[in-house]
Amino acid sequence: MNPFIEIITQPDNIAIVIMIFMVSFFMVWAFQQAFQNDRLIASGLPVEGENDGFVDTFKPLVRIELIIALVVMVGLTIWSIAVDAPLEEIANPTITPNPAKAPWYFLGLQELLVYFDPWLAGVVLPSLIVVGLLAIPYIDINPKGNGYYTFSERKYAIIIFSFGFFVLWLLLIVIGVFFRGPGWLWYWPWQEWDHARVVYEPTKDLTSIIGIDSRSIPGIIIGGIVVLSYLVGGMVAPYLYWKKNNPELLKQLGMVRYITITFLFVTMMAIPIKMILRLVFLVKYVWIIPWFGGINF
């Protein structure tokens, strides 16, 4: 069979295909409603639902809940009749499948293992995702866009969240499911998986490119300067910019909020930056700290 068809019709991958369709559908629907409301706002009209009154719970709401429940139940039943859950061979610690993949919703994190050490990709970054999500209501002080779809009134919040959700979370999952084969090597869906394939990538550390051993003291110092100046620079630059152009915003944010926002944002953007460094420039580590069991960035 065509490997592409084979891979998307694997029983567990059907869920991912369903997810791609559902997420795309709802993404379009959300933005379509947001732009529609934006047009209403621009022409000074109330947004969708602004003048809504109340309706009885029984029956309008109960009815719609029942209908949805029935539709979901029927859909899941059809899915369960049509596709059987796979059961592989009995667990065998001596036979390691290649690739060994985590559950699909964690494949974005597994994909990060290509670019970061496990303590970052598997522990620190996921924890920061949770912390960041928890922080959203407290760091987003924009009072607009509360309770209705809009894009124009909260552009930056939506762009940042969408980048995190669609690109860093969902796209990486899709890559992990459909584009990663044996040895976690990249395979296009129409390529056959080849277990003997080896790709030699002469990765280097950042300082090695300019001829300095990354594990030598000068290498460690230079690497440290690069990482820390990215972190500090990324956190100070918006301050300088806003101080000049929008001092009111800085005052509203306050110190704690400002530090939280910029730290989370700089950390988030470090992921695509490191991905580009690794994929385009074959950089393995920017900064190596050989002590304490190895802390490498």
Partner: peptide, 16 residues
């Protein structure tokens, strides 16, 4: 307790 679950859990908990 099949290969899929066993290795998914192995990969997942190795993160720990």
């Amino acid at each position: 307790w099949d290969q899929l679950g066993f290795w998914a859990i192995t990969v997942g908990t190795n993160m720990g």
